[in-house]
């Protein structure tokens, strides 16, 4: 029985490590800030990931050639954005997206050079958590049941040949 619980502890530990690695990966590479936080900052060196919605009616330029200017809406502030980069896969008005670039504090302009889709990590995490926890719980309960059944059968000496009534 100890061996049984040890094996399951191992499974839980590995799942935990994977969860930790994934959340760290997310924090490091994929977390984003809001336009409100960018506007108040003065840092023009670091590359930022800003998430906001492209304001309706503000998009000018030619996104298909990789040049565009627009406003990105946050909760209370909006951010003027100049986009120069590869043709963004989907840049349109009323779309929530992530911009990668630097904040130009002098000209109050965000210089974006790449766009990304909203990560929606909450959905990804919940799908994996639901599926994995349910599968683990299901297999665990069945295995434990079988272990108990074997014990019970051993105790009731059902191994011995026995004839019907």
């Amino acid at each position: 029985m100890t061996g049984f619980y040890l094996r399951w502890a191992g499974v839980i530990v590995i799942v935990g490590i994977l969860a930790l690695l994934t959340s760290q990966h997310y924090e490091k590479h994929l977390s984003s800030v809001s336009p409100d936080m960018v506007v108040t900052g003065n840092d023009s060196k670091t590359t930022l990931r800003v998430q906001g919605m492209v304001k309706s009616g503000s998009l000018t330029g030619n996104p298909e050639d990789g040049h565009a200017a627009f406003e990105l809406l946050g909760a209370s502030n909006s951010l003027k954005v100049q986009y120069e980069g590869p043709p963004p896969e989907n840049l349109r008005e009323l779309k929530t997206l992530i911009l990668i670039g630097q904040w130009d504090a002098e000209n109050k302009l965000f210089q974006a050079r790449e766009t990304a889709l909203v990560t929606n990590y909450g959905y990804v995490a919940s799908a994996y958590i639901v599926a994995l926890l349910a599968l683990i719980a299901f297999v665990f309960s069945m295995s434990r049941n079988v272990t108990f059944l074997y014990q019970e059968i051993k105790e009731s000496k059902i191994y011995e040949p026995e004839l019907g009534p």
């Binding site: 919605m53 989907n90 349109r92 009323l94 779309k95 929530t96 997206l97 889709l117 909203v118």
Partner: peptide, 8 residues
């Protein structure tokens, strides 16, 4: 507001 994956 259209869904994010709505696209031309």
């Amino acid at each position: 507001i259209p869904p994010d994956l709505f696209k031309e």
